[in-house]
Amino acid sequence: MSGGVGDNGGDIHNNPTAHGDYSIAANDIKKVIIKWVMHPSARWLPLLLACAVVVIAWTGWPDGPARQYALWGTLAGLSLVTAAARVLNRRPRDARVVGTLSLVSVLATVGGWLAFQSVRTHGEIDVTGQVRTQGTQPLDDAARRSLTLLLDAPALEKPRNALRLTLAIADHNPAAPTCLPDTTATVSLLTSGAAAQPTTIRPGGTVDFTLGARVSTVRIDVRLHTARGCRMDVQTTGAVLHDN
């Protein structure tokens, strides 16, 4: 009796159709994929997808330095090149080559799109031209006057949590002896009317402020420290919003 059970169990376990059905189904799927990939009309799909993503990205191009789009540009170029190679291969003989070109193009297109969206969400935004200045110049150390640099809602439309600021400080009278070696500036972020995060920088120096989330206005106080009798002009040469 035990032998009979063993025979039945062996028949079920070793039944050639147990794995044969899966093998047949896999072969059928493979044939369908190969037939679709090798079809003349299918060769255009990766190229159309890559071109559509490039056009959409171009129309929604945000601000910021070009270097932050290097990954997107590399992947977009790869997707276009492999898709074009697939189109130019009019009489493919090897389905593996065709499938590889199509797969690489689609994956590069998707990866490039994700990289582009990451830059749109977290990339740097140049707002140098949108910085407003309140106060009169030139500045000197004796008068204890200061400038206020302002960024309003339009510049802060795309939320970022930090601001990188670069200031140029120059002699008001270029013909007089230079005061630059003796000149610094204390730059402070104003929050609720009080100065916070004070940082001392030299002419041409850069300071990074943490803004927090969803700020509507940024106010920065600039106080000059220089030698007696020196009068200086202060100008914003760089203002970049970014995420820490």
Rank of each mutant, 00 (worst) to 15 (best):
A227S: 14
K158G: 07
L80W: 03
S41Y: 12
A84D: 01
D7E: 12
G205S: 09
L71G: 04
T237R: 06
Q130L: 12
R96F: 10
V131I: 11
H13W: 09
Y22A: 12
L139Y: 02
A108K: 09
R219N: 14
K31I: 10
K35Q: 11
V127Q: 08
R132G: 05
T17L: 10
P92Q: 11
G20E: 04
H172I: 00
G129W: 03
D233V: 13
P62R: 06
V240Q: 05
G238I: 05
L114R: 06
Q197K: 11
H242A: 12
T148Y: 11
L224I: 14
G64K: 10
H39R: 13
S146M: 10
V106G: 01
S216D: 10
A95G: 03
G60N: 14
A170G: 11
A239Y: 01
H19W: 08
S188R: 12
A50G: 08
R67C: 01
V110E: 00
R91N: 11
T74P: 00
R145C: 01
G204K: 11
L149N: 02
K30W: 10
D21Y: 14
A170F: 03
L71W: 06
V37S: 04
N14V: 02
L190Q: 13
Q68W: 08
A50P: 01
A57V: 04
N15P: 00
E157S: 14
R202Q: 13
G6M: 11
G60R: 14
P40H: 10
R43S: 05
G229R: 11
G64N: 02
T109V: 06
A85S: 11
L80D: 00
R90Y: 02
G3Q: 15
R202S: 13
T82Q: 08
D141E: 11
R160T: 04
A195S: 14
V5T: 14
S216E: 12
L101S: 02
Q130I: 02
G135Y: 04
V53R: 03
R160N: 03
Q137Y: 01
D221G: 04
P198V: 09
L49N: 02
V54E: 02
A76R: 05
V234C: 04
T200H: 06
N161T: 09
I125H: 03
V127N: 06
L48C: 08
T199F: 07
D152R: 08
D140C: 08
D171N: 15
L45Q: 13
T206H: 07
V215Q: 08
V187K: 08
T121F: 05
T109Q: 00
V97Q: 05
D63G: 15
G135S: 04
A76T: 07
T74I: 12
L211R: 10
N8C: 09
D208M: 12
